[in-house]
């Protein structure tokens, strides 16, 4: 369980840390904590698994992997663990999830794959299909990033009413 003070810290940690010699100091001051107390609290939230990762988020394209695709696979339930583990083992796969299927969507295993070009993505998916024996899959390339932001947890107005876009929302008009 999280204390009220920890929730306040989590709320404050959802910012982009200022680039300066002591980046945690202004944050600690805004919370009425010493820098040492804040650092200890962050380490504790990491140790308990509330913070998955602390650090810089880099644009994927910079890493030389210019193309990415979401690949959705139709995997028989009895094989999901075997196939999920194989695909998760690829360095080029950053996300691998089993998802509930619904309606007309029969693909239950989702991977994000990264490569230099879109045709390399296609070739990689083909090789993955041969290796796993899962031949029923779809590649979905993204045409436009319509929104990419980070979640604001424990906001003062906890209810997300769809009324106010968060300040750092990047919206690109698709037209």
């Amino acid at each position: 369980m999280l204390t009220a003070s920890e929730k306040r810290i989590i709320r404050a940690l959802q910012i982009d840390l200022e680039v300066r010699a002591q980046p945690f100091l202004p944050l600690a001051e805004s919370l009425g904590l010493s820098e040492t107390e804040l650092l200890a609290a962050i380490r504790d939230l990491m140790a308990r698994g509330y913070i998955r990762r602390f650090g810089a988020t880099i644009r994927h394209r910079i890493s030389g992997f210019d193309a990415n695709a979401m690949v959705a696979w139709a995997v028989p339930p009895s094989e999901i663990n075997r196939v999920g583990q194989i695909l998760a083992g690829y360095r080029e796969v950053t996300h691998c999830y089993e998802r509930q299927i619904t309606g007309n969507w029969p693909y239950n295993l989702f991977t994000m794959i990264h490569a230099r070009t879109q045709s390399e993505c296609q070739e990689m998916a083909q090789r993955m299909a041969e290796l796993t024996g899962i031949k029923d899959y779809e590649l979905l390339f993204s045409d436009v990033e319509l929104k990419k932001t980070t979640m604001r947890y424990f906001r003062d107005h906890a209810e997300d009413t769809g009324e106010l876009p968060p300040a750092d929302t990047k919206t690109i008009n698709p037209h």
Binding site: M70, R152, P174
Partner: peptide, 25 residues
Amino acid sequence: QMEQFVQVVNRYAGVTHNYLRRHRY
């Protein structure tokens, strides 16, 4: 309907990623 749909969806703070993808869906 795309423009309006994207506008409505993106207004929710809980929508953190939104992509237009080359697919029927």
